[in-house]
């Protein structure tokens, strides 16, 4: 059902509400950094869904609005440090565009912490985890995004909490005998 969330309805926080955050990570640096974080068994909350984009320069502002409309409470854009970009100037253009777009979204009433941009290189696995953790905490503090969103928002399966929340390897699925 398409859920019409008006401002008041979203204001109260449902009890087991978990922030939904999308991270657009640049393939060459941050995605590798995230991969490194996984390699080193670093735990970071699963609220962040990582989307790989070729370069932070490829970050189209429309993705951010679509994400917010489709139900995310926060958007994180990560790219290489200026100077490290595989495409040399990708993150310079992105820096300008994202600065302007961030101010425009805040001008339109979006809380500043909901849309963040970070430069995270391929080696900074720790920085990736800390960034993700801080973004999740900040967005959790802000509560659900109370923009009117008439596009049906995604209801992804509830995030498993408790300690096995972080070992995200699904156990072997044993196919029970198919009844006749």
């Amino acid at each position: 059902m398409s859920v019409v969330e008006t401002n008041e309805a979203a204001a109260q926080v449902p009890e087991n509400w978990e922030p939904k955050i999308i991270a657009f990570c640049c393939h060459w640096c941050t995605y590798t950094g995230a991969d490194l974080a996984g390699l080193n068994r670093m735990n970071y909350p699963a609220n962040v869904r990582v989307l790989r984009i070729p370069c932070s320069g490829r970050m189209n502002p429309q993705y951010v609005i679509e994400a917010l409309n489709k139900g995310c409470d926060g958007v994180l854009v990560c790219g290489c440090h200026p100077g490290d970009c595989h495409y040399v100037t990708g993150n310079y253009f992105a820096r300008r565009r994202m600065m302007i777009f961030k101010r425009l979204l805040e001008y339109e009433g979006l809380e500043p912490d909901r849309f963040q941009v970070r430069w995270i290189s391929g080696a900074e696995a720790g920085k990736f985890r800390d960034t993700v953790m801080s973004v999740v905490e900040q967005v959790r503090a802000l509560g659900p995004l109370n923009l009117t969103r008439e596009i049906p928002y995604f209801e992804l399966p509830a995030v498993p909490d408790g300690e096995e929340a972080f070992d995200a390897v699904p156990e072997e699925v044993v196919p029970e005998e198919v009844s006749a």
Partner: peptide, 11 residues
Amino acid sequence: NVAENRFYGLT
């Protein structure tokens, strides 16, 4: 609706 109009306006 408000969501689509915002998408168009901001873009």
